[in-house]
Structure formats: C-alpha cells, structure tokens
Computed example of a mutant assay.
Amino acid sequence: MDTKYYWTEENNGEVTVGLTEAGKNELGNITFVSLPKVGAQLTTSDTLLNVEADKAVSDIPSPVAGKVTAVNSNAVNDPSVLNGADKATSWIAKIQK
C-alpha cells in the first residue's frame, strides 16, 4: 500500500498513524484487523497492520521505525472504527521514533 494511503501526525517524537480516505476507498469496508503488540519494535519494512476488507486483504507496512507505544484497541473489537473520518477515533497505532 502506497504512503498516500495513510496519514501520520508527530508530537514529541511519537507518531500517530491512520488510514487516509484514499486508503479506505481502496480497501473498502474494514471487517478485520490485526495490530502489533504494544512494546513491539518496528522497522519500515515490518507490517504495522493486517487488514481484511470488502475489496482487499492487505499487510500495511509501518511508515516509521520505532517502538509501538499504543494501539487502537477499539479497532480490534470493532474494526469498522477505522472506516471513520475522525482521526481521534480512527487511528491505528502510536509509534515512538
């Protein structure tokens, strides 16, 4: 998945990652997600998110290298939250660079 399909916001070296509208449109309605564990170390070649959706099953690579400090646990219980437009609720993970 191309980098235009996810957004990042950095605050004090911690990067929040989510899917852009283009990413959501390519995937379709998200029905299942697998997120990394908090504390996991990721490189930019590691999978950040495994997602199953109406149009595709994708492994989405991490846009930044670092340690996972938080994941959106609401997305695990209800993957459809990632379909939303509100970044406060539709984020995937937070990564400390």
Rank of each mutant, 00 (worst) to 15 (best):
S73E: 13
S34F: 10
S45W: 09
W91G: 12
S58N: 13
T20D: 11
P63N: 12
T89K: 10
N25R: 15
L82Y: 00
T16R: 04
I95Q: 01
G23Y: 05
A22N: 12
T20S: 14
P63G: 13
V81Q: 02
G39L: 00
N29Q: 15
T31D: 14
V17C: 11
N50E: 15
K97R: 13
V17I: 12
T16C: 06
S58K: 12
V51I: 11
V68L: 03
N11A: 07
T89D: 12
V57L: 10
V76S: 10
T47E: 05
G18L: 05
G23N: 09
S73G: 10
E10I: 08
W7H: 04
I95H: 03
D59W: 02
S90A: 14
T69A: 05
G18R: 03
L49K: 00
E10N: 08
K94T: 02
N12Y: 08
N50W: 12
L49F: 03
K94M: 04
I30Q: 06
L49Q: 00
I95R: 01
S73W: 07
L49H: 01
A88L: 13
E21Y: 10
E52A: 01
L19F: 06
G28H: 07
F32E: 13
L35Y: 00
T31P: 13
N77K: 15
P36I: 10
G39S: 08
D46V: 03
T8Q: 14
A22E: 15
K37P: 02
V15L: 03
S58W: 09
A40T: 13
V81P: 06
N12T: 08
T44S: 03
N50H: 14
K94D: 01
N25T: 15
L42N: 01
P61L: 15
S90E: 02
T69P: 00
A40F: 08
T44Q: 05
A88S: 14
D78P: 09
K24T: 01
I92W: 00
E9D: 11
V51Q: 06
K94W: 02
E26V: 07
